[in-house]
Write a protein that binds this DNA or RNA. Structure first.
Lengths: 210, 210
DNA sequence: AATTTCACTGGACATGATGTCTTTCACTGG
DNA sequence: CCAGTGAAAGACATCATGTCCAGTGAAATT
């Protein structure tokens, strides 16, 4: 018996709907009760779906978090941190990245914290997203470092490698959160602090604006 | 019936022994298998003790972690980061703090990571140690900022408040680990990077050494 | 209209973790 | 030597993860 060809638009759409609902309920729970560890069961119930469906769709708890990472990445516009302001002036690009980072991180602070902490604490479970995200950011900073070097915007006593290292630190979520949650600063002030720190640490003094 | 007076030296000593053994086995497990989440059961078994004994001694899982925080704090000499080099020159004090931080954090990296992540992810459970430790560091940086200001070592365009914020970021475990684990730098290089970043970000250029 | 396929259900089951409560045992002090 | 005490062990309840699978109802095909 030859396998039949099926082309099911409606059912595929329904499946996508379910998937979306699950991720959304996870997002809501993270916002409502950031402290509590989220259980697959609660997510499923909140989404009005059987627990087994979550496993069916995402494979495992880790898979769920991985997918949630992508979801959050798109939703919050994390890519703005790296790509964002493709300004011809590298120094302006740097400032844009830090402003974008402050905004994005602030909006999704709780979700991002849960995701990052999860990834740090349970590497095999979360190997996926948090790690990939960090690599993306690392590459972005390597690119930015190169551009700053090419445009002669680096301090004379700073190698390109050092600049990349420092930019990697300064654009990280952890650094943002140390100022935002740790020091209780509001996002614009955080951005100010980060920009000041970055420019002083890697940009040549003469080039710096007022 | 009047309550009898008991003064049990031997038994008290044995109890202390047990307590120490439990914390030590926790330390070992964190070093041997940093990835895995540590369960009370495994800790107890490794210490040759019943699981309930851990609960008896420490009250709860959170209590265990709290006590472990103190244990690690003493063992690693975390206080060196703040008190350490009480050098008359505040700038030298700053450099000393960062060197101490790099050493201390590097030696106990895995344990510290587990502890910090735990605290971030589960605030009520870990409210104790990680939080107290951070407050201690915050106060230390406020003191350092004040001394730098008093000695006229701050950049003219940096307020004392901003200096404290930035020092708080730069001396944090997260910042260290971004360079150490994230960028794969060895501890001395991390210290170099941190010192360079800190001096450029908060110290007046004229005062900086070579 | 009959049939196939698929998303999803709903439960059973195994495992492993946390936390509480009761019981056992060894040592201390008289 | 024996009575009381506290440390430790063991049993019990609960909850989460992960696997499995028979079944259901709606969509797609013939």
């Amino acid at each position: 018996m030859a396998p039949r060809k099926y082309e099911q638009r409606v059912r595929a759409a329904a499946a996508d709907e379910t998937r979306r609902r699950i991720l959304e309920s996870m997002y809501n729970q993270l916002r409502e009760t950031p402290a509590k560890t989220i259980s697959v069961d609660r997510v499923a119930q909140d989404a009005g779906v059987a627990r087994s469906t979550v496993y069916l769709v995402f494979g495992s708890r880790a898979g769920l978090f991985d997918a949630f990472g992508k979801y959050l990445y798109d939703r919050a516009g994390f890519d703005r941190i790296v790509q964002a302001v493709q300004h011809p002036d590298a120094r302006e690009h740097l400032r844009g990245s830090l402003r974008a980072a402050s905004e994005v991180y602030a909006v999704e602070r709780d979700a991002a914290r849960a995701l990052y902490s999860m990834g740090l604490l349970d590497p095999d479970a979360m190997a996926g997203m948090a790690l990939r995200l960090e690599q993306l950011r690392a590459r972005g900073m390597e690119y930015l470092g190169k551009r700053l070097a090419e445009q002669g915007s680096l301090r004379p006593d700073v190698t390109e490698a050092e600049a990349v290292d420092l930019l990697y630190v300064i654009t990280s979520f952890d650094t943002f959160d140390l100022l935002f949650t740790g020091r209780g600063l509001d996002p614009p002030t955080v951005a100010e602090r980060l920009i000041a720190m970055a420019e002083r640490a890697v940009c040549r003094p003469a080039d710096r604006v007022s």
